[in-house]
């Protein structure tokens, strides 16, 4: 950030952290169902009876209708990229995805770029964030058709969806 820093005399500074340890966030039953469905290559969304929107991954509440999203709907594992970015090159030890180093687990090669994308799966009204795999960064575009890349061994965890790839 060379545009920002000037040489200045420093005042007294005290190193400090705010280590509260791990939080234990309360998850929803809907998300539990979503994760369980992944083991069977199923993407489960929540359905709002008020506005008929389907949200993937599911959420408990619809803000628009201010009501619970009681319904469920399975959506396709195929969808459309609604936006994307191309990252700078990723190097070993610099990034964690699902708590894992993508270089170490072989998702990307050292120095390779990552392409985070928003995907609207067919039948869904929301965006899901994931990564685009098996594609040249030059080819990615909004409107690109993609499908889920499922993990070889499905375990019923978020890691079952490794990303998406062009159809």
């Amino acid at each position: 950030m060379g545009y920002l820093k000037d040489e200045r005399p420093t005042t007294i500074g005290v190193e400090g952290g705010w280590n509260l340890g791990a939080y234990h966030y309360k998850g929803s039953r809907l998300l539990e169902e979503y994760v369980a469905g992944l083991k069977h290559k199923k993407l489960t969304g929540s359905f709002c009876p008020g506005c008929a929107r389907v949200i993937v991954p599911p959420r408990n509440l619809c803000g628009r209708c201010h009501r619970k999203m009681d319904g469920r709907k399975t959506v396709s594992d195929r969808g459309t990229i609604t936006c994307f970015v191309v990252s700078p090159p990723i190097y070993k030890g610099k990034l964690k995805v699902l708590g894992m180093d993508p270089v170490e687990i072989g998702l990307v090669k050292d120095g390779q770029v990552v392409i985070p994308v928003f995907v609207k799966f067919d039948g869904s009204d929301s965006n899901t964030d994931t990564v685009l795999l098996n594609a040249d960064p030059k080819d990615v575009h909004i409107g690109m058709r993609v499908k889920v890349v499922w993990a070889k061994e499905l375990q019923g965890s978020l890691a079952d969806v490794e990303g998406v790839e062009p159809i």
Partner: peptide
């Protein structure tokens, strides 16, 4: 969202 986006870790 701690339950999904933070787990995915790309944003």
């Amino acid at each position: 969202d701690p339950q999904f986006d933070r787990q995915i870790g790309v944003l």
